[in-house]
């Protein structure tokens, strides 16, 4: 039974991490993205990958923001797309884990290079590529940790960053179909 939540008149915005289990078929991502652009919703981050080859399922994690009424609309609009199996608002439904991975390319020599390595160590970033004048660090963590790392690397020769966007899952034994 689909429960309709009653958003109040609260006009403050919140961030929501929404997990969507979809049929792994052509065009499904375009439907989701088209829904967001067509109705003017924000996408802060979106990730997608197949998660069950046998059942043809993919999982999309969307980080969005809006008023409570808008977030309810987003979920209801997603839920009525035909190839969508399940929509879960991880932010509302209890504790969850949200992670993203990023690759940071930092170029420099001398003291800056040593400092970059020292900070990377403190952040538990892994060195996945090194030359005498550069590193590529790999790091997995919460979004704000990655943000903080990027901010520290900037003065030390940050060349570019590639981030996956957030993937998330609820804590505890229950799955999204729960």
């Amino acid at each position: 039974m689909l429960k309709v939540l009653m958003p109040d008149h609260d006009l403050s915005t919140r961030q929501a991490v929404i997990s969507v289990l979809v049929e792994n078929e052509a065009g499904v991502l375009a439907r989701v993205i088209g829904l967001f652009s067509g109705r003017g919703y924000n996408i802060d981050s979106l990730t997608v990958a197949a998660v069950d080859e046998d059942k043809h399922l993919s999982r999309i994690t969307i980080v969005t923001s809006g008023t409570a009424m808008v977030i309810e609309q987003i979920k209801a609009q997603l839920d009525r797309l035909v190839p969508i199996h399940k929509v879960a608002d991880l932010t509302m439904e209890g504790p969850h884990i949200a992670r993203e991975m990023a690759l940071f390319k930092v170029a420099g020599v001398g003291e800056k290079r040593v400092e970059a390595l020292r900070i990377a160590d403190a952040f538990r970033a892994r060195v996945v590529d090194a030359t005498t004048e550069s590193f590529v660090f790999e790091m997995t963590g919460a979004t704000d940790k990655l943000d903080a790392f990027a901010a520290l690397m900037r003065p030390l020769g940050l060349v570019e960053v590639s981030r996956t966007g957030v993937v998330a899952i609820a804590r505890g034994p229950k799955g999204i179909h729960g």
Partner: peptide, 13 residues
């Protein structure tokens, strides 16, 4: 369900 609370907040859906 997406028609509910889209334009007008309602007290019972």
């Amino acid at each position: 369900p997406s028609s509910v609370n889209k334009n007008v907040r309602v007290d019972c859906a």
